[in-house]
């Protein structure tokens, strides 16, 4: 554990938050025009045009990465007024324009909260706005208070305040590996002075390394009641949620070859939803937002150049388009040689 924490600290030092825009403005403009409404709502178009704390968090982060202070203010205004209304200071996760009231599930989604806090910190540093930084710090404290599950030397990040704990489910606690936004964890640790965040980081990395030893790509939901295993009632798949795991590892500079190996193996024939036990593809994916993830893994491993058609961004649907931009920003920052 000590060794691991040391590695994390080193990685943290190595990756200072972007002070300069790393996302090409024209790509962000295309994204903004398609998914960001004038009132600051970021729309998940394929998901019934709802919004959620995750889409708002990604919108904020991308706006910060693109240096778009105006859009950031717009998206934050919506996020704060419509979602940041919980008693515990976290964001309600689901907002449906067709429902009254709009918030249709007051539960939080911890990755959404974490993305919002991380983006606020990004904006606070990028534009010297202490208000944003303070808000990021407060939100980070609220997340730690409400969602950290300390157990022995481990600290798990619970996916939500309700619904996944030991008392909520027979196989609880249940976690979601893709909620570890690795790049944000050391930032939150430094922001709050709470090294619980580093323990969260270490716990997540240890889990991924255990999975890698078993040559298993991360499933969407895992029971950590005993030895980690795919949670009951969810498909044991390396699916839409989990495909962010290798991206987050790469963005955080934690993409060691061994850790990424199961993901590369699962995607040997291109991006797909993969059964984590049989390793069989359940569904092949073709959106450039997914294909660039595979290309980024190849770049990180072998220096393989990113195909031209993936370098230019054309918005498709909210989720793959988001992954596309996050990957492009990561590549331009860390892997210029593949571009």
């Amino acid at each position: 554990m000590k060794r691991l924490l040391g590695a994390v600290a080193a990685a943290m030092l190595a990756f200072a938050p972007a002070a300069q825009a790393t996302l090409p403005l024209e790509a962000w403009e295309l994204y903004r025009q398609k998914f960001v409404m004038p009132d600051g709502r970021v729309v998940d178009d394929l998901n019934g045009a709802i919004s959620h704390s995750e889409s708002q968090g990604y919108g904020l982060l991308l706006a910060c990465l693109a240096g778009d202070r105006t859009s950031f203010a717009r998206i934050l205004a919506f996020t704060r007024t419509e979602l940041l209304i919980r008693d515990d200071g976290l964001a309600a996760w689901r907002w449906d324009p067709k429902a009254t009231p709009r918030v249709t599930d007051i539960n939080n989604a911890t990755d959404g909260d974490l993305l919002i806090a991380y983006a606020l910190n990004c904006a606070g540093s990028a534009w010297a706005m202490p208000g944003y930084t303070n808000a990021a710090r407060q939100l980070a404290r609220n997340i730690a208070k409400a969602t950290f599950l300390k157990r022995g030397s481990e600290t798990w990040l619970m996916p939500a305040v309700t619904g996944f704990s030991e008392k909520d489910r027979a196989d609880g606690p249940v976690i979601n590996p893709s909620y570890w936004v690795f790049e944000a964890l050391p930032v939150m640790a430094r922001l709050t002075g709470d090294n619980g965040w580093l323990k969260v980081q270490a716990t997540g990395l240890k889990l991924l390394d255990t999975l890698a030893k078993a040559n298993m790509p991360a499933p969407e939901w895992m029971s950590v009641k005993a030895e980690p295993r795919p949670a009951d009632g969810f498909p044991a798949q390396f699916g839409y949620n989990a495909m962010r795991v290798p991206l987050y590892l790469l963005r955080a500079g934690l993409g060691e070859p061994g850790r990424l190996a199961p993901f590369r193996a699962a995607w040997a024939n291109g991006p797909a939803i993969v059964d984590v036990r049989s390793k069989q593809a359940v569904e092949q994916l073709s959106d450039p937002g997914y294909r660039i993830l595979v290309a980024a893994l190849a770049c990180a491993a072998d220096g393989t150049a990113i195909p031209q058609e993936l370098k230019s961004f054309v918005p498709t649907a909210y989720y793959p388009s988001t992954l596309h931009l996050l990957t492009l920003a990561m590549l331009s920052e860390r892997y210029q040689r593949c571009m």
Binding site: Y132, N134, A135, Q138, N142
Partner: peptide, 16 residues
């Protein structure tokens, strides 16, 4: 539990 304050979205100090 304090939380995000309105001032956060405003112009930087000292004006604020």
């Amino acid at each position: 539990r304090a939380e995000i304050k309105p001032e956060l979205a405003q112009a930087p100090p000292p004006a604020n």
